[in-house]
Amino acid sequence: MNLKSSTSLIALSTASILLLSSCGKQEKAEETETVEETKSSFLSAPLISHIYTADPSAHVFNGKIYIYPSHDVASVVEEDDSGAHFNMRDYHVFSMETIDSEPVDHGVALDVDDVPWAKRQMWAPDAAEKDGKYYLYFPAKDHDDIFRLGVAVGDNPEGPFEAQPEPIKGSYSIDPAVFQDGNNYYIYWGGIWGGQLQKWRTGEYLSTGDSPYADEPADDEPAISPMVAKLSDNMLEFGESPKKIEILDQDGMPILAGDHERRFFEAAWVHQYGGKYYFSYSTGDTHNIAYAIGDSPYGPFTYQGVILKPVQGWTNHHSIVEVAGKWYIFYHDTELSGDTHLRNVKMTELTHNSDGTIQTIEPILE
């Protein structure tokens, strides 16, 4: 894409050197690829380089692009499959005047110390606007180490945001994403393994030990469903009982838990195109951003294919937004650090085909 991939070799080299210096990563310089190799290996260059960012939720508010990412930090927590080493504690908001602009960092919009109920791990957020107020939705572990969803309110899209004193009643797991459809707002969420969604299969939290896999269904059973609920009028609570989302194959059968190439893992996102609802998500351990299409924001959604193939790094988490008549996907990889938990946000153009399907994107070039 010409937005960032056309950045000159000299500019990219300078940015890389500055990043290594500012983040205390000089010792990794000899381990990383050369600038020339990096330029030829990645479809897009990082949008933000002075801090590590991931899980970008992008929106257009008041004619300007806003990005709500998580903020990766170095962690002394040992890496494991529950994601404990993703130990983020605050959120920065970034804005872009146009799709070609450099993102502006508006500083810390919300810190874990400002959330009375939260203990740690401020993971992927999202934002919404209603009647001139802005709402930041975020997951965090409470003081019992159970993920809940919180909401904070601000007068401006860049924050600062003031958190509600309690999490959303009845909420659990991670990765909230809000979709506006007319006057209705829907919140989607869920993530398995470290996101704990599998521990809520009975409607109550199951504590079956430290293994993130313990409560998964058998491979020949339907995969664990992400969740959806219409938000209340004040945007602070679920306005209805949460519902499970069905992701079906082309024969109308549920995607199975053993189908790791297609089953939902985390990172729900919904956009609308051509009168249809597109539910996209990460497949987790197979590293795809996949999508399914339906006729209702509640689903069911029929699996269509892969939007974004695997990036460098274990995770991926995306958002899809229309800007000035074109569509873009925001995502992350680990180009700047090479470390799984120190990621950087990227962006590239997304194309819907004439039949409504989406062209698959290769984020790493041969």
Score class of each variant (00 low, 15 high):
N2V: 14
L3H: 10
I10P: 13
S13Q: 04
S16A: 09
I17H: 05
L19G: 13
S22I: 12
C23R: 03
G24R: 02
E33M: 14
E33R: 11
E36Y: 13
E36H: 14
S41P: 06
S49N: 04
I51S: 06
Y52W: 08
P56C: 09
H59T: 10
K64V: 09
K64A: 06
I67Y: 01
S70K: 00
V73A: 01
V73M: 08
D80K: 00
S82A: 13
A84K: 01
R89E: 02
H92R: 00
M96V: 07
E97V: 14
T98S: 01
S101T: 07
H106E: 12
H106F: 01
L110P: 00
D113N: 05
D113H: 02
D113Q: 09
D114N: 13
V115F: 01
W117I: 05
Q121D: 13
Y135F: 11
P139F: 02
I146Q: 11
G150A: 09
V151Y: 04
G154M: 05
D155V: 04
P160N: 10
A163T: 14
Q164F: 14
E166H: 09
I168G: 09
G170K: 13
S171D: 10
A177K: 06
A177Y: 06
Q180G: 15
D181E: 12
Y188T: 10
W189T: 07
G191C: 07
G194N: 06
L197H: 01
E204W: 12
L206Q: 15
D210M: 05
D215N: 13
D220P: 11
P222L: 13
A223R: 00
P226A: 13
V228S: 07
S232M: 11
N234S: 10
M235L: 10
M235D: 10
E237P: 07
S241G: 10
K244Q: 13
M253R: 05
L256Q: 03
D259T: 04
R262C: 14
E266A: 01
V270H: 00
T286F: 10
H287G: 14
P297L: 04
Y298W: 11
P300G: 06
F301W: 09
S319D: 11
E322H: 09
G325N: 13
F330K: 03
H332G: 08
L336W: 01
G338Q: 02
M347N: 00
T348F: 01
E349Q: 11
E349D: 03
T360V: 09
E366N: 04
